[in-house]
Amino acid sequence: MLLGVLLSMAGEDENPDIQLLRKAKNGDRDAFGELFRKYEKRVFRVARRMCGSDDEAWDITQDAFIRAMQAMDRYDTQYRFFTWIYRITTNLAINYAKKKMRRHEVHFEEAYSAEGQQVIEDNVADRAAGEQLLGAVSKAVNKLTPALKAVFVLRIDQQLSYSEIAESLDIALGTVMSRLNRARTKIREELGSMLGEWE
């Protein structure tokens, strides 16, 4: 028991993120800034990929960091910090998505359509077809269930390994594989003949 505690403490000491987290929770402005800047863009990006708007993504980002500090005592140091913050972020995003579904506020397709439109306008004409296809991909991703989308986002957008995804989402490795396969299959089905552009 004592050994476990000591090992645990040693493990924490070796984890600079946890040191920063602890200092941040105690009001250390610099520590919080360092920790936040280290993960802010990744957290926001996952949140934005998972939800329907920038506003929601900011909300989720804010919640994720606050909850990380609030729940620091429950952090299991056997996990890497970045997988933990990913877990918090994806859980928050899934909760947001569930709330929206209950309220029937599904508007992210329009948001992504707008984003795709913006992308098209910002690019040269010979890329227009490809960007339209990209818009279709975004729509297809957003039609995924939150569970499938979480795996897809962590793998494709964040380029996490299967084991890192399993750790982040607290699911089995086999579940990661099956969900990723289903996500990819569904996306390809949604794209249908449009996929020929890339074939």
Partner: peptide
């Protein structure tokens, strides 16, 4: 997948700084 990944537009840094300030203030 590469196109989808590369299409992401990260917000300007000042938005992150505002968020950092808000979170720190709250905590």
């Amino acid at each position: 997948e590469t196109s989808w990944r590369d299409s992401f537009v990260t917000p300007e840094d000042d938005k992150f700084r505002s968020m950092e300030w808000i979170i720190y203030r709250k905590m």
